[in-house]
Amino acid sequence: MRPINVTITKMIDESPSTKTFFFDRSFESAIPGQFVMVWIRGVDEIPMTLSYTNAITVQKVGDATSALFELKEGDSLGIRGPIGNGFTLPQKDEKVLLIAGGVGAAPLAPLAEHVANSGTWSNVTTILGARSYNELIFANRFFMTGEIHVTTDDGTQGRRGFVTDVLNDIDILEYDKIYTCGPEIMMARVFEILHKADAHTRAEFSLHRYFKCAIGVCGACCMDPHGLRVCKDGPVFNGELLVDTEFGKYKRGGSGIRGRV
């Protein structure tokens, strides 16, 4: 598909380094966890998960996101998508645990709302972590959909520490479905805890790798050792597929050279 043209209708500052960009186009068929390729014309095209059916939430981390932050309401973007496999939606009455770190809250907030709107109020529990209180993303959206545990690295809000500290304290096996998105180091720690509890097979992880084609052809985002494509076979993977893989250990950049996660 060619990129379709969307116009930015509204921008909201979510944190000092994170903004939500709303478009004049809603992707109603998108499943939480799917992503779109966002073309900042003349600069680059980058993958972003949808944080609403008509918005992306972006952290300023590099050239492309910096260019995106320069745009104003009324400016346009090219969008391809939704692409890839989203989260496996829970069955009715299943207990759901969400573990979000930083801007990793972006695909989990719409999932929380989906579950809350289709199931019972009390079924979603969220562990939301960030470096500091002003980096917490979508705390209110999670609060509105169920129970929330907040952690900050510096203790400025909620519990001082990491999402894994909360995870270590709760009864993991109480939850039927676990979903996580955040920095890979965080997800790798979550994976370790779930694996130890033999709960990794009920967990799904939203992964990030450098995408080139984004349509499952070029192989740039393949993971070791099974050659799974993050863009097409993911970006959401069941924990079972991540056992003894590169996940949490290394990732390849644009040239294919391995680097730290």
Binding site: R2, M37, K212, C213, A214, G219, S255
Partner: peptide, 18 residues
């Protein structure tokens, strides 16, 4: 994949469209 003498990042995206 075609391999060369030095690491190359390639062009900016979009790098492939249907």
């Amino acid at each position: 994949k075609s391999i060369g003498p030095e690491p190359k990042e390639g062009h900016h995206n979009p790098s492939m469209v249907q």
